[in-house]
Design a binder for these strands. Structure first.
Lengths: 219, 219
DNA sequence: CTTGACAGTGAACAAGTTTTCATAGAACAT
DNA sequence: ATGTTCTATGAAAACTTGTTCACTGTCAAG
């Protein structure tokens, strides 16, 4: 996989975050405005690059229509969580969506062939202790084993303002990961609950998608 | 909340499914094609109705851009599990009855069979499709701590034929308890996952209410 | 019978959006 | 020096999409 440039990375992150927040993709003009481009074609070029590099799939001619190609993990694979729904195969739903989240985002999705690891998938609210925008994620990797969150577990994420020490789902450098949030003065970074993993210092941007409120384990 | 007509429900479901599958919303013409409308305005009217009834929120001026208003389960609903319909609907989360608490320590009476609450769990948490009779129990006591099931946890119980070694919710001597099921030849008894607790040998009868498939913990 | 709500057709329009074309500076390897 | 790649501008073309308008039919309530 070709490396992404910083700008491409940032644009991809923005697109993912946009879907996570709004449940629909940004238009080229939305991206243009966000990054203060003077021309839509600047964005267009980046999108072409992202598609050429295989991380983004555009639907020709359709507005606000994309698919995310799951990013390949490096050997030092961090714990990456994948949204319950818009996953590749494993689980019914998405999304959100969706979470896929779409699905997605959004309430009530299952099963998805498309992958979208930035889509919020609200659980239909019935329980009073869960926010309507909560969504579920499946955990991959073992970077949180000291917090007793293991590979294959399902984590329920709720949006909100994270405090120091909260375990959060965060979008950092293009990957969604589950880590403990550390706030030290002006410094903010992510910490794995596993001695073998280094801290994650955000280089470009850090987007907190929600706080892990509970974890579900298969017996 | 106003009732949705059949067509409106179908369109809303289609839209949700579309997002779940593609990660982006359908255009009006996509919907038109799906339902064989001769005019886009037919769809337009339905979308207006969906928005007026408060289940869908359109983003003015933006293409393929919507938000779903989470549908709240009615309190009077006796339905325990919501399944995805045959192709039309796709639901990621199903709700299970909350059947009170269960003693993981010394046997204790269950709080009758009264349903206290309904919680929603991801389908993936246990099997791909949960048995319709699944229910949730809150754990009290510490007799299963070696199996990492602690006081305050919530376990999802599914009816079924328990195998040796399964953790089961059992009615023994008139009390419901959570223990590991041991089958040794003709002998069947319950074993706590805590050295401080003795085995439970059934004196009169032993009724297995279900198998614990997954456990949910607050973080 | 009439009224009104609901559902739909068919055509056209306006805005949103993607895509193409022409051009150009900066960084960089050859 | 020279060509290539990446990034970007500016404008326009082409297509997609949401929206509006005029009109028709159905069905139940008044």
């Amino acid at each position: 996989m070709e490396e992404l440039t910083k700008k491409q990375r940032a644009i991809l992150d923005y697109m993912k975050a946009h879907v996570a927040e709004h449940t629909y993709w940004p238009s080229i003009r939305d991206i243009q405005a966000k990054f203060r481009f003077a021309s839509t074609n600047a964005v267009f070029g980046h999108l072409q690059a992202l598609e050429r590099k295989g991380v983004l799939q555009r639907i020709p001619g359709a507005a606000r229509a994309y698919k995310i190609v799951p990013e390949v993990l490096s050997d030092t694979s961090e714990t990456v969580i994948r949204y319950e729904g818009p996953g590749d195969d494993a689980i019914a739903f998405e999304s959100v969506k969706f979470a896929g989240s779409i699905a997605a985002g959004f309430p009530d999705y299952t099963e998805s062939s498309g992958v979208l690891d930035a889509m919020q998938v609200p659980i239909s609210a019935s329980s009073r202790r869960r926010a309507p925008e909560a969504f579920a994620l499946r955990v991959r990797g073992d970077s949180m084993i000291d917090a007793d969150i293991n590979d294959g577990d399902t984590v329920i994420i709720e949006p909100g303002s994270p405090k120091h020490g909260d375990i959060v789902a965060a979008l950092i450098d293009g990957e969604t990961t589950l880590k403990r949030l550390i706030k030290q003065g002006s410094k903010v970074y992510l910490k794995a609950e596993n001695q073998n993993y280094p801290d994650l210092i955000p280089t470009t941007s850090l987007t907190i998608q929600g706080i892990a409120k509970s974890v579900m384990k298969r017996i």
